[in-house]
Design a binder for these strands. Sequence first.
DNA 1: GCCAACGTTGGC
DNA 2: GCCAACGTTGGC
Length: 134
Amino acid sequence: MNYWLMKSEPSVYSYDDLIRDKKTIWDGVRNYTARNNLKAMKKGDLAFFYHSMEDKAIVGVAKIAKEFFPDPKDENWVAVEITSFKKIKNPVTLAQIKADKRLANMALVKLSRLSVQPVKPEEFDLVLALSEEK
DNA sequence: GCCAACGTTGGC
DNA sequence: GCCAACGTTGGC
């Protein structure tokens, strides 16, 4: 199983929106690196849901429900379908991640503009552990 | 094929 | 609002 991180501006589409909708099509990705990551996703993979801009925090976990298919809006690109999986207890902020040496190599820090990025299993576990802390 | 100009993302 | 980082475009 692989782990991912997908970014969204909460004012556009938030994790609470995903909870309300149960599932959503993740389309509109127009970056080759991000597209390659979408294509590498397998059904059942888990992805952190990151709120950019206002929150700058990981707020939930989504599950890949459907592997890549052509983006309904532009078939040169691809989309996946995700479902809400788990809302994180305490959001893990970008500042927290940057402050933790063990997470300093996360793509979120290194490749700050990439909207769909891979997460290492140990990073995934660490972030979840951070979210359990007060 | 190089690279300058330009556009976009997203943190600060 | 600014600007750094980075991706894309287009002239040569």
